[in-house]
């Protein structure tokens, strides 16, 4: 459900940057969505159709770039991809696994006319 307010922010950020660049229409919006961000890409897509109506982003392609979860163990220094939010090191089992990627929710780039 919070994808609705995330998507409202997404459209506001895109419109703001597009206006400042003198755009009359946004062709595409590229967004990084971390696997561990808590946002569901399909829900963002669904909300985008609603939130972009009547804005510069109406009809724009929403390009969601998935970022896999990744972390490093503070104890054994193992690095690994991980598909769930956890502090358990997949290599040594210590509660020292620190995530360094996968939480992204960031508008990266626009294409405008």
């Amino acid at each position: 459900m919070h994808e609705l307010s995330l998507t409202q922010s997404l459209v506001a950020i895109a419109e703001d940057h597009a206006r400042r660049a003198g755009a009359t229409v946004i062709r595409s919006i590229t967004v990084e969505v971390g696997e561990l961000s808590g946002a569901v890409p399909e829900a963002l897509e669904f909300a985008f159709d609603v939130c972009s109506k009547g804005t510069l982003a109406e009809g724009a392609a929403l390009i969601l770039r998935r970022v896999p979860g990744h972390g490093r163990c503070g104890l054994c220094a193992a690095e690994a991809e991980c598909g769930e939010l956890t502090a358990v090191c997949p290599a040594c089992g210590a509660l020292a696994f620190e995530l360094d990627a996968g939480r992204e929710l960031r508008v990266m780039e626009l294409e405008i006319d």
Partner: peptide, 10 residues
Amino acid sequence: PRAVRVEEDL
């Protein structure tokens, strides 16, 4: 279309 870098968190 022109590309615009944004890099802003939602």
